[in-house]
Nucleic acid binder design. Structure first.
Lengths: 208, 208
DNA sequence: TGACCTTTGGCACTGAGTGCCTTTAGTGTC
DNA sequence: GACACTAAAGGCACTCAGTGCCAAAGGTCA
């Protein structure tokens, strides 16, 4: 019998959660590396069956992704709410910066997560599939603003390019323990615009 | 005994070639789909051992990639040879268009290849790893031209963005049996530049 | 013929992911 | 308390990709 107003869920209760499995798994990844950790390792460490693991995550590759869907909803909402008079690319730039804002207490965890996703080849590959949803959010926005179909060349091009910019900024962020992600994303977007704008406006430091 | 001036190679002769395996595999992919084709299928069809397959390709995912390395060398050469007074992004645009020029007789094969790479999720994912080399060619060029380090934010951002543009153009090309790849690549690059240039210069057709 | 070299491919193994089916831990009802 | 009902858990067996090891095959040259 349920004493709360919430209707009690039928059937056996879930024994663990994505978040808990994520923690257990990350612990192992830290010690043994991603490739060096088997699903069995994770299942044993979490005290569940191997088969059960796959009821929480479709694959080992999805573990580092947490609740990406929810984040996407946030970005979608942000773009929908942004004033229509803002220039298209400015809106996108601000959306991307906002989307990737992380509360300071979560920063360490976010770093760990992204270090895996962008550092481990298998995950790097797998990420392409997850990014598709992210790109579609941008593409839909561009489509709506420009009147192009959302699978048309322009919206897709902008979406793909913006994803690239974001990834490049993330990689820089991971290279430096004290880098500022928001700044990097903003700079990357502006640099690309500048590169298109007037030839080579940027000969800053000696390269190699 | 060798009658030609070419020194005969020592040891057992290779029994097949990447190109031949590629052909055999594509045949099967057409009939059974990529996922529906096992390495065993390919090996049997090619009359070789399963183990031998892996001496020609590091993985099933690499089969559709043909001789990508050689193509990359071509693009590298093109960029190295391009007049230094050309504006950076124009040079890159032309390099990308040139890199993706395919002789008419190879177009059908190239379509098949790209349909796999961009259409099958596993391959889509795997492609990320192959694209890394492509990106580096662009990044190195940008680095040299701008004086930034080649793993710096600007070169990497441009490289990632350009890759995105190219993929978006390819996807459009695959959607239409008679599309012109060079035109699409060129348009995609210019569209992105325009999007950065002046807000929304492009409200062309009704979207949805 | 025999020394030498390289490719081939068989065998056994690991590890991811899946389908099927039983068990377990909950619910509400009589 | 016994019962039907429900959903999660997880065991089992299987497929398939990929790898390490090693012996056999097919070439060269002296």
């Amino acid at each position: 019998m349920s004493t709360t107003g919430i209707p009690a869920q039928l059937g056996r209760r879930r024994i663990t959660s994505r978040a808990e499995l994520e923690h257990v798994a990350f612990e192992l990844f830290d010690r043994q590396g991603f490739e060096g950790t088997t699903i069995d390792d994770i299942a044993v460490a979490a005290g569940i069956g191997r088969r059960t693991f796959f009821r929480y995550f479709p694959s080992k590759n999805d573990v580092p992704w947490g609740n990406f869907e929810d984040e996407l909803d946030r970005m979608r909402g942000w773009l929908a709410a942004c004033p229509p008079q803002w220039p298209l690319m400015d809106a996108i730039r601000l959306a991307i910066v906002d989307f990737n804002k992380v509360p300071p207490e979560d920063e360490r965890w976010h770093r760990r997560r992204m270090q895996l996703i962008l550092g481990v080849p298998v995950l790097q590959a797998h990420s392409t599939l997850r990014y598709a949803e992210w790109r579609q959010v941008i593409a839909d926005f561009v489509a709506e603003r420009t009147g192009h179909p959302c699978d048309g060349l322009l919206p897709q091009t902008v979406a793909y390019a913006m994803l690239g910019v974001a990834i490049a900024a993330y990689e820089q962020w991971l290279q430096d323990d004290h880098g500022n992600l928001s700044e990097l994303l903003d700079t990357a977007m502006r640099d690309l615009a500048a590169a298109f704008g007037d030839g080579l406006p940027l000969r800053v430091e000696p390269g190699r």
